[in-house]
């Protein structure tokens, strides 16, 4: 991978981190409503994964979607404005934190019913298969989603119909506050692919380059073999499940241990060791990301609220 792309990945990871840190402050200040699930700690997963896709490959994810939105190419302005419920938000202020999507960027949401988007992902791939192209649908979900029926119906259908879906389980160790071990019959999610005769791999989700390499291989396999594949990417969220999580289910020691494994710090070390960038150059990127976030906040704050007259708009395509 060339230096420019490596630094772009680093920039996106820092941008996601800063955007969410500032987002958390705005949430505490009452400027963001509803539920907000932070991606902090997991940035290497979507960054490495999405760097490996072609623009024609479709993305769909769950409600922890800010990072995916940024990596998909949705601007920080549009993400921040959506968080603030503004009409300039990527979903025009209709969706909020959990529902970011952009048809233009081939990002199909942002879905808040656990597991509900997995059969829809199979359908995106079905639509492509029906159209006769070899686009890949990349479907991300948490470990918690692998215990619900949707997961099993979707994996079974995808394999039976040879649909080009890359299933990506972001195993962040907890479904809300319940550990994988307490909720899943097998603790290696990867094993669940075996029951569907599907290839699978388990990857370190704190190393963005490992994620990138595994994703590239997996996407290529899905495309050329015309069959689904399951990637389990092991990661950890540094913040609570959502804002206002008392975190009684884990110790500060455990969180600290994982924070020592910060994906941004790891990537930074690799970049400097490879002489892809100096510390100074990376500091400059950090500052650029910070500025981008501050600009996004200004943009979102200055943006208009949706018109109340538009309340009934887009319930249907056709007027009723």
């Amino acid at each position: 991978m060339n230096k420019e792309r490596l630094l772009q990945m680093y920039y996106e990871m820092v941008l996601i981190r800063r955007l969410e840190e500032r987002g958390a402050e705005l949430y505490q200040a009452g400027k963001i409503g509803g539920f907000m699930h932070l991606y902090i700690g997991q940035e290497a997963v979507s960054t490495g994964l999405i760097a490996a896709r072609e623009p024609r490959d479709r993305l769909i994810t769950a409600y922890r979607d800010h990072g995916v939105a940024i990596n998909a190419g949705i601007s920080a302005n549009e993400v921040m404005a959506e968080l603030l419920g503004k009409v300039t938000g990527i979903s025009k202020g209709r969706g909020g934190s959990m529902h970011m999507a952009s048809v233009e960027k081939n990002m199909w949401g942002g879905h808040a019913i656990v597991g509900g988007h997995l059969p829809i992902a199979a359908g995106l791939a079905l639509g492509d298969q029906y159209a006769g192209n070899d686009n890949v649908t990349i479907c991300m979900f948490g470990d918690g989603a692998t215990n619900i029926g949707y997961f099993h119906e979707a994996l079974n259908l995808a394999k039976t119909w040879n649909l080009r879906v890359l299933w990506v389980c972001e195993n962040n160790q907890y479904g809300m506050g319940t550990t994988v071990e307490r909720a899943s019959a097998v603790s290696e999610i990867r094993q669940k692919a075996d029951g569907y005769g599907m290839g699978s791999e388990r990857v370190d989700g704190m190393d963005v380059l490992a994620v990138y390499e595994a994703s590239q291989k997996a996407i290529d396999s899905v495309r050329t073999r015309s069959e689904p594949y399951l990637l389990e990417i092991v990661t950890y969220r540094f913040r609570g499940h959502s804002m206002g999580d008392p975190e009684r289910y884990r110790t500060q020691g455990e969180v600290k241990k994982w924070q020592a494994n910060d994906p941004i710090a790891i990537f930074r070390k690799k970049l400097t060791a490879r002489k892809a960038a100096t510390h100074k150059a990376l500091d400059e990127i950090d500052a650029r990301a910070e500025m981008e976030v501050e600009k996004a906040i200004e943009f979102a704050e200055a943006s208009p609220e949706p018109e109340l007259d538009d309340l009934f708009k887009d319930v249907y395509v056709e007027e009723v």
Partner: peptide
């Protein structure tokens, strides 16, 4: 769920 979910997905992409 597979029937209706996949139908929705295929409808989304045209």
């Amino acid at each position: 769920n597979a029937i209706l979910g996949s139908a929705i997905g295929a409808a989304l992409v045209g």
